[in-house]
Design a binder for these strands. Structure first.
Length: 228
DNA sequence: CTCTCGATCAGCT
DNA sequence: GCTGATCGAGAGA
């Protein structure tokens, strides 16, 4: 199946995930996202590491914990859209929204393997810097992944699901610039889980999921509160 | 309004 | 292993 428009890479046998896939709690969707292929224009990434964020009021680590705000509004929208946020004064990170409109849950895309458009991704990752980036590091980490796929403020709310089958003009390709292909998910035995990274609360909640042994899984340690 | 610190990363020791 | 960069969301006064 074609991944993009004419001239775009083709992933044989791959079909876009439909919106119903994301109409479940983040912690349920998260492990199922591993091995899927996220496409945005010329760059595609095979997802190798994710983190789930729960519903408002129940997950203190979630941006939606205290309810809807202008920043997190997309998280309360329909499933299958990107929630892109700015953090640390310099980085963007991207989530895929889960659960129906009105409920704020999602999955943070933490790392992946660039499977097409590596040259474009590398150019983005090295722009304005005299530095080389190894292939495995192109999308190894949530902010790096956002750069590789060119997810910024303007992509907050971007739909990554195809239209309903009845509305689809054909079964070929993605309808828009972005989408998630079913790819080749790992077996349950290859999936590991543990506490979320960079999260100071709910450390006991094992909502980080990754593909065991994959070199593109991010190397970062759990966050320690900084002092001033 | 002021203040804190974050779902991070790169560069350096 | 440690730290600076850089800014805006959200909490509290």
């Amino acid at each position: 199946m074609r991944a993009g428009g004419p001239g775009e890479p083709v992933f044989a046998g791959s079909v876009p995930l439909r919106r119903e896939f994301f109409d479940r709690p983040g912690p349920e969707v998260a492990p199922d996202l591993l091995g899927r292929v996220l496409v945005h224009g010329p760059v595609s990434v095979r997802i190798t590491e994710v983190e789930a964020y729960g519903v408002p009021g129940e997950d203190p680590a979630s941006h939606t914990y205290r309810g809807r705000t202008p920043r997190n509004a997309v998280m309360f929208g329909p499933p299958g859209h990107l929630y892109v946020y700015f953090t640390y004064g310099m980085h963007f990170c991207a989530n895929i929204v889960c659960l129906p409109e009105g409920v704020g849950s999602g999955v943070l895309l933490r790392a992946g393997e660039v499977v097409s458009g590596a040259e474009v991704a590398r150019a983005r990752r090295t722009a304005g810097a005299s530095r080389t980036v190894a292939a495995r590091d192109l999308a190894r980490g949530p902010a790096r992944l956002a750069v590789a796929l060119d997810f910024t403020r303007e992509h907050d709310g971007l739909d990554v699901c195809p239209p309903a089958p009845a509305d689809a003009p054909s079964t070929a390709g993605l309808p828009g610039p972005a989408g998630v292909l079913d790819g080749d998910p790992p077996g349950a035995g290859a999936i590991r889980s543990g506490p979320r990274t960079g999260v100071s609360s709910a450390r006991e909640t094992p909502w980080r999921f990754w593909i065991d042994g994959d070199p593109t899984v991010s190397p970062y340690r759990p966050h320690v509160p900084r002092r001033r």
